[in-house]
Design a protein around this nucleic acid. Structure first.
Lengths: 199, 199
DNA sequence: TGTACATCAGTGAACGCGCGTTCACTGATGTAC
DNA sequence: TGTACATCAGTGAACGCGCGTTCACTGATGTAC
């Protein structure tokens, strides 16, 4: 090796990290290879030394974005006493700063419909990421229910949070957007607290 | 007038109607003017005789798509007795055929994050459309609550349905997708049935 | 320690192609007489 | 009713531009002696 052992790998990681933000900000279809590379401080020519295709980078960046989303949620739970963790995760997800910073926010909220149009393999990776988010929520639900029922409820709860955040972002009126976040919070609590159908 | 009085207007409506489908299917950023025009059986040259710009058509098509979504939901409520209407609207929204036919389905579920990136005016029109969907749901909620609280809950409930449908579309595995729809249904019922905070 | 050399991450011109938009034209239609 | 004409919705070539991708090259780096 003539160059530092992991110099190229560091570049790759930088490209993926910046792309994870850019894709959330602008959407998957709206961003070109030149933009993605210049975000990482390079020119487009180096792209194919790192990735097989644009789609290859998109898949890696989506995975990275979801990981960052989960790490962010987990970060918000540190130092929160167990009995307040459920409300903490809901409030963290629906706080105004999350609504206003799409690029660093939940990848599913920023991109779910576009991801639904991608190939099976990329959707599979994304779905595992959604599962890891549901895994953050599941232990915070009230006790009861079968494993399946708890898992399904955690997914539905996440879907509800995601939908509320998306609509809060789409409203042009600030007061309506706040109401959307507050309503989303109430809805999340209602889902969590409803009776389990099985013991 | 040398031509039939509303020949041009019929063409415009056809372009808008086909675009309303194409945009939901492929996403807003992924579709070009040539595709939109050939969907309506014309060549791209005629486009600017009907619309000021691509964005102009997008705005009209989104409005049209949301109207169609609301009409579809209302259609599902015809001949349903009042006491079953809430479950009917939830089941209609989360039925597999809706999940599988994005092009004719809910515009918000297909495009919400992309719409959140558009200009204020288009988002305002979209938000009025979401309001008209919430207006379908609101009277079907259990009695109680202030007008504001009922309206907010109807919006949150819609957000929850939308999120569940989006995730059901993103999962590659069929059984998991079904579970997502069923979980979304339970979540919607939990939101609707939770206690009102005010009388 | 100093110099010649090999490596290879990154550069930037170039490829064919599709984009949004413009515009001179075509030809089907309805009108006038 | 038949023919000449005016209208104008729709056509398709063309504009400059950015796309994804390829590739000959550059020049900073670490190695060999």
């Amino acid at each position: 090796m003539r160059y530092g052992a992991d110099r190229k790998e560091q570049s790759r990681r930088e490209i993926v990290a910046r792309a994870a933000e850019r894709l959330r900000r602008d959407g998957i279809a709206a961003v070109g290879v030149r933009t993605l590379m210049s975000d990482a401080g390079m020119t487009h020519g180096a792209f194919y030394a790192h990735f097989g295709s644009r789609d290859d980078l998109v898949a890696q960046a989506l995975e990275r974005a979801i990981e960052a989303t989960r790490d962010g949620l987990l970060g918000h739970l540190e130092n929160v006493p167990a009995e307040h963790r459920f409300e903490a995760v809901v409030d963290a997800y629906l706080r105004p700063i999350h609504r206003d910073h799409v690029a660093k926010g939940c990848a599913a909220a920023a991109l779910a419909p576009e991801i639904a149009r991608l190939d099976d393999e990329t959707r599979g990776r994304f779905w595992r990421g959604v599962g890891s988010l549901a895994d953050v929520i599941e232990p915070l639900l009230p006790p009861g229910g079968s494993d399946d029922e708890r898992r399904t409820r955690a997914h539905a709860l996440f879907a509800s949070l995601m939908g509320s955040l998306q609509l809060a972002r789409a409203v042009p009126d600030a007061a309506e957007s706040e109401r959307m976040l507050a309503g989303g919070r109430d809805a999340a609590l209602a889902i969590a607290r409803s009776a389990w159908s099985s013991t």
